[in-house]
């Protein structure tokens, strides 16, 4: 019975939410085939795999070593490949984050196996079938996996974590011996001054566009984001104008987000912006132009002046949260 290997992701020794998502994705495939979900956690010596049974892991292999505290492409890909070759796996699942988008292709090339990238849905009956957006989200591919194993990169927020009751065994593993051979080395992570939740990982995103008129007015967006507990996003127009960093840009040349709730404030809804957020579960648009294309994809809209609407919205949400 083939098992599923899921690759977890950590930062500073703390597993990220996407790790719980890939476990849930692994569960979907394992339950269909009767196999197990094995999780591989790579990070510093303090990394712990405890409690992951509840999120769906049957077994967790923890590779904790100072050499792999940061994402080291060559060491990580060799370690994952070693693990795959030590068992019988039909799929390797990781998250389509900055790490997973680099690691997935490397592992697939090493294993000489297919890669299904940026997957938003997966299922298994008579073989693994995945769905993935293409053409800037304007079309969806349905693909059947025809060889084994396969590497699958699941888009963050596409699969909800589960709340299961597996006991989960935790083992320790080792960094592949490639440790001495690594050539490209990640030296450090430069943190931005304000450490904020990244748009790709946030459950709620509040994005602002050119409708805000001045960079200072982004304080309105930050205030609303603070009230709902959201990450701040931006359209390319305001990133190109230098009002916001590129790391906040949502869209085809920015980040792809699939939050539960997305606010587009003073954003017209150009196709390239939609490419980055049309898979959000619920979209709210606030725009003074009733014909703005953003209203075509929004679930809820308010037509009007954002300078009047946004402060009121932030206030009322704060009131609710206080009660």
């Amino acid at each position: 019975m083939a098992d599923i290997l899921v690759v977890l992701e950590q930062r500073d020794g703390v597993l990220k939410r996407v790790s719980h998502e890939v476990l849930a994705a692994g569960r979907v495939l394992a339950d269909a085939s009767g196999g197990q979900v094995h999780a591989l956690a790579i990070g510093g010596p303090d990394l712990s795999g405890d409690g992951l049974g509840a999120f769906g892991a049957d077994r967790v292999v923890v590779v904790g070593d100072d050499a792999v505290k940061l994402y080291q492409p060559e060491l990580y890909s060799a370690t994952v490949t070693d693990q795959v070759q030590s068992g019988e796996y039909s799929a390797v699942i990781l998250s389509a984050t900055a790490m997973g988008r680099d690691l997935g292709p490397r592992v697939a090339a090493k294993l000489d196996c297919p890669l299904a990238a940026d997957v938003t849905e997966l299922s298994s009956d008579d073989g693994i079938v995945v769905k993935r957006p293409a053409y800037s989200g304007k079309a969806i591919y349905t693909l059947r996996v025809t060889s084994s194993p396969v590497v699958i990169a699941v888009r963050p927020n596409a699969v909800a974590p589960i709340d299961g009751s597996q006991a989960g065994i935790v083992d320790t593993g080792q960094v592949a011996s490639a440790v001495r051979a690594a050539r490209a080395v990640t030296k450090a992570i430069k943190q931005p001054e304000r450490h904020a939740v990244d748009v790709t990982e946030a459950a709620i995103v509040v994005s602002g566009g050119r409708g805000l008129k001045e960079p200072e007015h982004f304080s309105l967006i930050e205030d609303l984001a603070g009230a709902v507990g959201a990450a701040v996003g931006a359209s390319r127009a305001v990133v190109d104008a230098g009002w916001r960093p590129h790391s906040e840009q949502v869209g085809q040349t920015g980040k792809t987000v699939s939050p539960n709730l997305y606010f587009a404030v003073g954003i017209s809804g150009a196709v390239q912006h939609l490419a980055g957020m049309r898979t959000a579960k619920v979209i709210v648009a606030i725009n003074k132009d009733p014909d703005a294309p953003i209203f075509k994809v929004a679930d809820y809209g308010i037509v009007g002046d954002l300078f009047e609407i946004v402060p009121r919205l932030a206030d009322e949400i704060r009131k609710i949260k206080e009660n």
Partner: peptide, 18 residues
């Protein structure tokens, strides 16, 4: 190792409302 089953338009988002 991937066989194309179909290329489709994304599911229509349910008609939103103002």
């Amino acid at each position: 190792g991937l066989e194309l089953v179909a290329l489709t338009l994304p599911p229509q988002r349910q008609e939103g409302r103002i």
